[in-house]
């Protein structure tokens, strides 16, 4: 998490030379201590800057404008006052909102208005009060408000069956083994389907989270005799005592081969481990 904050701050600092295109007017407190709101506002500023990929107008610049034109201090997020504010600040858009408490959660309402007074978006987000989740939730809210198209994550597949077709929401994304996780998927649920003739179809709903890779182990069984034979073949020797289904010999064999190759390639000299059956 500290890393994420560092990255966010770094991004912010880097963009600081550019002219701000966005301002966070303020976050009104609805019955919350100003300390808490200030903290939330701080996180929100960092995340908005990251999401919109622009530095934000510094706080003191906004305070100065309000000092010069007191009418802004009564502004509670109406387009009629946010639009001239955006013009005065020289930014394209202004974000304003409020935050209240609901049990041990925070409810944040945010609105995004452009120079001409058009509302570009609004959202209500319920945030978990716990510190470890808060930053992530504020981040998601910031992206949802100003850059929803960047709100994506990925799916990383682990599939034993080679050459199976992989589709997300009905769109073919390649065949196993995929060279990389399937990325650029919008946050939320997606249908994942993995199929290869001779094997049972895999079909599940996968939840994609922001900037995360959901790890999916694809479970497919051989259903035709041909596919079963293929498994039997690639895992070779004759079944011996103990039961045929505990294929310890495959694993012993595989590690022996791996070790053999490893030695050939010029690596470690090692003896095969003996593996007990399960």
């Amino acid at each position: 998490m500290r890393f994420a904050v560092a990255v966010a701050l770094f991004g912010f600092a880097q963009g600081a030379t550019a002219t701000p295109r966005l301002a966070l007017f303020r976050l009104d407190a609805l019955g919350l201590s100003s300390e808490v709101v200030e903290q939330l506002e701080g996180i929100l500023r960092v995340e908005l800057a990251r999401a919109a990929d622009t530095p934000l107008v510094p706080r003191n610049a906004i305070a100065e404008v309000i000092a010069r034109q007191p009418r802004y201090s009564d502004c509670t997020g109406e387009p009629a006052c946010l639009a001239p504010l955006a013009q005065t600040l020289g930014v394209l858009e202004v974000v304003a909102g409020n935050v209240g408490a609901l049990g041990d959660r925070y409810v944040v309402n945010l609105k995004r208005v452009d120079q001409r007074g058009h509302e570009l978006g609004r959202l209500t987000a319920t945030l978990d009060g716990r510190a470890d989740l808060l930053i992530q939730e504020v981040r998601v809210a910031a992206f949802r408000l100003v850059a929803p198209e960047k709100l994506t994550g990925s799916i990383a597949l682990l599939s034993e069956v080679l050459g199976a077709s992989v589709a997300v929401d009905g769109v073919l994304r390649g065949t196993t083994p995929l060279p990389a996780p399937i990325s650029g998927l919008s946050v939320g649920h997606h249908t994942l389907q993995v199929a290869r003739p001779g094997y049972s179809d895999y079909l599940d709903q996968v939840e994609v989270r922001f900037e995360k890779a959901t790890e999916v182990v694809v479970h497919q069984r051989a259903v035709t005799t041909a596919a079963k034979l293929e498994i039997a073949e690639r895992t070779a020797p004759k079944p011996i005592d103990p039961p045929a289904y505990s294929r310890w010999w495959f694993w012993t064999g595989a590690s022996a081969v791996a070790i053999g190759l490893g030695v050939l390639i010029g690596g470690a000299v090692a003896t095969p481990q003996t593996h007990a059956t399960h």
Binding site: A254, A258, G262, G267, T271
Partner: peptide
Amino acid sequence: RFVSGPSKRALDL
């Protein structure tokens, strides 16, 4: 399997 010891080292190579 392959999570520690020589089999892991070999596979890693």
